[in-house]
Nucleic acid binder design. Structure first.
Lengths: 140, 140
DNA sequence: CGCTTGTTCAACCATGAGGTTGAAGATAGG
DNA sequence: CCTATCTTCAACCTCATGGTTGAACAAGCG
C-alpha cells in the first residue's frame, strides 16, 4: 500500500479523504447516523437500535464513517461511544463552496457582460459558453 | 421521470437528491469534472480529453452528475455543453453546516459545563455522553 | 448523398458495497 | 471462573458501479 505520508500534507491524501467523506454521506443511513451523532455521542448498539438491519451492518457503517474521518471511536472500554468530528465536514463545505463561488462569480460576470452587450447593441462574445448560458436565462 | 413538484417539497425527494449528490462527488473523476465545469461549460468530449478512459465512461459520469442535479445539459444541438448548477451544491453545504453547527454548539455547551463543574467541584451530569466526552478531553 | 464527429445505448465484465449469518474477542458482573 | 453483553471479524450473497467494446443515433459538411 502507499502509506508514506512522511511530512508533506499531500494533496493526494486530501483527495482520498474527500472521496471517502462524500461517498460516506452518500448513504442515507450513514447520513442519519451523522444527524443523530450531531445531537449526542452514542454507542454502536444504540445507533443500531432504530433501524431494522443487524448491528453488524451498522458497525460497518460506523467504520466507513470512521475511515472517512467523520467520526472517532473513544476506546474507553466502558462506554465505547462514537463521536462526530467536524473538521472533515469543514473540509467538505470548503471544497464545495470554493467551486460553487467560482461558478457563481463566473455567472454574474457573464450576466454583466450580457447586460453590457444588450446596451451596446452587439459585441461578439469570445466564449462559446456565453451563448449557451444566455439561452438558459440563469435562474436566480 | 418524477418531475411533478406540485406543492409539497417532499423530504423523501430531497433525501434522495442528497444521496445522489454526495455519492456523485464521492468519485474523484466526477469531482474533477465539477472543478473544471466551475471554470467553464464544456462538452462531453472536451471533458473526456484529459483522462485516459473512454468517452463513454465520461458520458456515464456526466449522466450521474446530471441525475444528481449537479449539472444540466443544454441540448443546443450546436454545442451540447454541460453546465454546472449550484443549487444542489447549496443544498449540500446547507445539510452539512446544519449538523456541523449543531455538534459544534453542543461541544461548546459541554465545555462550558465542564468548566463550571470544575469550579463547583461536583454536579452530577445527567447525560451519559457527558462522561464520555469528559474522558476524551475534547481536542480544541 | 455519404462521410466525419460527437454522443449515447446495449451487453458485458470485474470489483466493491451493503446486507446477512455465525463465531470470535473483550469486558463488566455474578 | 463462568456468563452475559457489546463489538468486530470472516465468509458469503446480491446488486450497483465503473470500466470496456461495439453499434446506433444525430448533425454538420464535403
Amino acid at each position: 500500500m502507499v502509506e508514506q505520508a512522511g511530512a508533506a500534507p499531500d494533496v493526494k491524501d486530501d483527495d482520498e479523504r474527500l472521496s471517502r467523506a462524500f461517498a460516506a454521506l452518500g448513504d442515507p443511513i450513514r447520513r442519519d447516523l451523522v444527524v443523530r451523532l450531531a445531537e449526542a455521542d452514542a454507542t454502536v448498539s444504540e445507533l443500531a437500535a432504530p433501524y431494522d438491519v443487524t448491528v453488524q451492518a451498522i458497525s460497518k457503517h460506523v467504520r466507513v464513517l470512521e475511515d472517512a474521518g467523520l467520526v472517532t471511536k473513544t476506546k474507553d472500554a466502558q462506554r465505547r461511544s462514537v463521536h462526530l468530528e467536524d473538521n472533515v465536514l469543514d473540509m467538505m463545505t470548503g471544497w464545495i463552496e470554493r467551486y460553487r463561488r467560482q461558478a457563481e462569480a463566473r455567472y454574474s460576470r457573464l450576466d454583466a457582460l450580457l447586460a453590457e452587450m444588450d446596451a451596446d447593441g452587439r459585441t461578439g462574445p469570445a466564449d462559446p459558453a456565453t451563448e449557451a448560458n444566455k439561452k438558459r436565462g440563469r435562474a436566480s
